Amino acid sequence: MVVGDSPKGWLADAFASLLEEKYGRGRVPGVRTISADISAANDGQKISHGHVHHILTGEADNLTDRTRSLLARFFGRPATVFLQPDQSGEPEEDLVQVLAARLATFDSAQMSAIEEAVRLVSTSRARTK
């Protein structure tokens, strides 16, 4: 998935790109159909066609966890696809320190579970590239 720097923003670009992947270039239906398809893929849980429109036009620049989860299931992608990418590429120093302090309190079973989760995510990402 290639996401450009359009004036609409990263989320609109990512969403439009995923829709083209799913439906085919030039075959993306209207927002009402997209909304209905999202609902069908999520056992009836909906994202309104108005919200779909706002995402596509760039009026929505972030998503709730619920919306992110529904879209992830619809597109068959991890929910992290709908998180704004870090522009710097560098983690915030305070966040790293907080995480390190928290990890220091975990026992070996908890650390093993975290290592396994990281391995699973890394393997999944490698397959989608």
Rank of each mutant, 00 (worst) to 15 (best):
Y23R: 13
D107A: 14
N42G: 03
G89H: 09
P85L: 09
V98K: 05
S39I: 08
G9H: 02
S122V: 02
A104C: 09
A14Q: 12
V52A: 04
A126I: 01
F75V: 09
S69F: 03
H54W: 07
P85I: 14
S17N: 09
P85N: 14
S48N: 11
P7V: 00
M111L: 10
L120T: 15
R102A: 13
G24N: 07
K22A: 12
L71Y: 00
Q110W: 13
Y23L: 11
A41V: 07
D107M: 09
H51W: 12
D86G: 11
G89R: 06
D37P: 05
A101F: 12
T105M: 15
D94P: 00
D94W: 06
E116A: 08
Q84Y: 10
S124H: 05
T57Q: 06
N62H: 13
V28D: 12
H54C: 07
S48L: 08
M1V: 07
S39F: 05
K46C: 10
E21D: 14
A101Q: 15
I38A: 01
F15H: 07
A100D: 11
P91C: 13
A41R: 10
R102T: 03
V96H: 03
S124V: 00
A104F: 08
D37S: 05
G89C: 12
I55Y: 06
S6Q: 03
A109M: 13
G58L: 03
R119S: 03
A126P: 04
T67L: 04
H54F: 12
V118N: 00
A101S: 14
E93Y: 02
D5L: 02
E21K: 14
M111H: 00
H54M: 10
H53Y: 10
M111C: 00
Q45L: 01
I34T: 11
Q84P: 10
S6A: 10
Q97G: 02
S122D: 04
E92V: 06
I55P: 02
E93Q: 08
G9L: 10
Q84M: 07
S39Q: 13
S6W: 00
G26A: 02
R125E: 09
A101D: 15
L11A: 08
A113F: 01
L11I: 05
G44D: 09
N62Y: 10
R27Y: 12
G26T: 03
L83M: 06
